[in-house]
């Protein structure tokens, strides 16, 4: 009797989880997989086959957009780590107790501001009639207003900006757990700064680094607003291709194919990252 009640309550507790994961995650992913394997041969006539993938490989524009998105995402992730690590170190180890909390909160505030507002802020700053250009002209540094939007450097700056907080937050929480005695021991044993950094700090911070890199990479590769608003019409971002195929051209077969490719690619990178560093998804991402 007691056991039956336990089973019943387990099933009841499991139901929302099963409905959620089944109906909103697993089946829809299988759905786009199915649509991507469907070739349109006429009006409402379909054949099964890998034709959509062959089209993707045959068309250099699509291929290059995926490669470009991929390498720019990796670049943004690397830059976010480079720029963010010293800041995280400062917050976790150098700032005093009280300013630490304030700095950490300051880091979190832009996290709650929409991507759209952040991208809009960059537009106001960087466009031809924008603040930076006007100030530079006013100061006599440049003769005419310059357009600073719509180039790759701006897109990278904007993307790093959008994602860097997701790098800093896990880094700070890992570094805060580190005992300073570890560093002292390293120096006492004759290690130089570089050795201590490479042999003690980096291995200790690894879960935070991996978590930050995964989140940063996923957010960058899947971002839509920043590349489009800061990069303009020719930003060639892969999510933009997906949107165009789905909504503008109403070509769901091609759109689904691109979706599967993007998901496959990002999963591959995440899996490789976890494998290389010996971490798992539940020890990194779920820690937030």
């Amino acid at each position: 009797m007691r056991n039956d009640a336990g089973k019943l309550s387990l099933i009841l507790l499991m139901a929302p989880f099963a409905l959620w994961i089944g109906l909103l995650i697993v089946l829809p992913q299988l759905g786009i997989g199915y649509v991507s394997l469907r070739e349109k041969v006429g009006i409402n006539q379909y054949e099964f086959g890998p034709g959509n993938y062959a089209d993707f490989i045959a068309e250099p524009i699509y291929r290059n957009t995926l490669f470009r998105t991929a390498w720019m995402s990796i670049l943004v992730t690397a830059l976010a780590l480079l720029v963010g690590f010293p800041v995280a170190w400062y917050i976790a180890k150098i700032a005093r107790e009280r300013s630490r909390a304030a700095l950490f909160l300051l880091c979190l505030i832009p996290l709650w501001v929409s991507d759209l507002v952040r991208a809009y802020g960059w537009i106001v700053l960087l466009r031809e009639t924008g603040v930076v250009s006007t100030v530079l002209v006013g100061a006599g540094i440049i003769a005419q207003p310059v357009e600073m939007l719509y180039n790759d450097v701006t897109v990278v700056i904007g993307l790093v900006y959008t994602v860097i907080l997701f790098m800093i937050v896990p880094l700070v929480s890992t570094l805060q757990g580190m005992d300073d005695a570890l560093l002292e021991a390293g120096y006492n044993l004759g290690g130089g700064r570089l050795t201590v950094f490479r042999r003690i700090i980096v291995p200790y911070a690894m879960p935070g680094i991996v978590a930050g890199c995964i989140i940063t990479f996923m957010l960058t590769a899947g971002s839509y607003l920043t590349p489009i608003l800061l990069g303009g019409k020719n930003s060639s971002w892969f999510t933009e291709q997906i949107y165009n195929q789905f909504i503008t051209r109403y070509n769901w077969e091609a759109g689904a194919t691109f979706g599967v490719l993007l998901l496959g690619f990002t999963s591959l990178v995440v899996w490789a990252g976890l494998r290389l560093t010996g971490q798992s998804l539940s020890t990194t991402v779920a820690k937030e």
């Binding site: 989880f17 994961i21 109906l23 909103l24 995650i25 697993v26 089946l27 829809p28 992913q29 759905g31 786009i32 649509v35 995964i214 989140i215 996923m218 590769a221 899947g222 839509y224 999510t239 997906i242 949107y243 789905f246 769901w252 759109g255 689904a256 979706g259 993007l262 998901l263 990002t266 999963s267 995440v270 998804l281 539940s282 991402v285 779920a286």
Partner: peptide, 23 residues
Amino acid sequence: LYILMIVPLVIPGVILGISILVF
């Protein structure tokens, strides 16, 4: 199942959107 629970966080939002639209 625990990993499945975390997975939605690492699927790009655009893909969640189109997959639910298609389904």
